[in-house]
């Protein structure tokens, strides 16, 4: 039990100082888990990230789950994941109750009108980042364009497109097609 609590609170602490996505958590993980706790090595952290990106699920949780599992099996997996989400639940819950009250104030409305532009710009920078890593040939370019076009034209679930693209990826690679 003591070990589990330690896993829970370690990930609670890590999550509390992570701002942004799962990748932003990496340097903090390395400091806490590798240098302070010495649970795993730097190389393992990098391996876990590589694996996590190849598995379904939120990146940060996949990595936390793997480290927890490595330490204590399934219960460690659960402790690490819950530790990671607890600060989010606490902070966001408190904040949202405030925001709905603030929303009517004029200055807040102006701020959010500006923030809408900033947040949209952040999405575009994420698209650029994903593009660089994913669109490596003409087939990938086709998948990228067709996915976006289908989403504009039809009312279809993204899940279907993800599954289809996975199948296409396997078929293309198996058939040895060169783009």
């Amino acid at each position: 039990m003591k070990g589990l609590l330690e896993i829970y609170f370690t990930f609670f602490k890590i999550s509390s100082v992570t701002f942004g996505g799962g990748m932003a958590m990496m340097p903090i993980l390395q400091r806490e888990i590798v240098q302070n706790k010495q649970w795993i090595t730097d190389e393992e952290v990098i391996d876990y990230y590589a694996l996590s990106q190849g598995l379904p699920g939120i990146l940060a949780i996949n990595v936390a789950s793997m480290i927890g599992y490595r330490k204590k099996g399934l219960v460690g997996d659960i402790a690490a994941s819950l530790g990671t989400v607890s600060p989010c639940i606490l902070i966001i819950t408190i904040l949202t109750s405030f925001i709905s009250n603030f929303r009517d104030i004029e200055i807040i409305q102006h701020a959010f009108a500006g923030i809408t532009l900033g947040a949209t710009a952040l999405i575009f920078s994420a698209i650029v980042g994903l593009w660089k890593k994913s669109v490596v040939d003409k087939i990938c370019l086709a998948i990228f364009v067709i996915t976006a076009a289908i989403m504009f034209a039809f009312d279809i679930s993204p899940v279907i497109l993800i599954i289809l693209s996975g199948v296409i990826g396997i078929l293309v690679k198996k058939s040895g097609l060169r783009a």
Partner: peptide, 14 residues
């Protein structure tokens, strides 16, 4: 191989 197809799809969705 599946991820070769899934990655550009994720980018397209976004």
């Amino acid at each position: 191989h599946a991820f070769y197809g899934i990655r550009p799809c994720v980018a397209g969705l976004l």
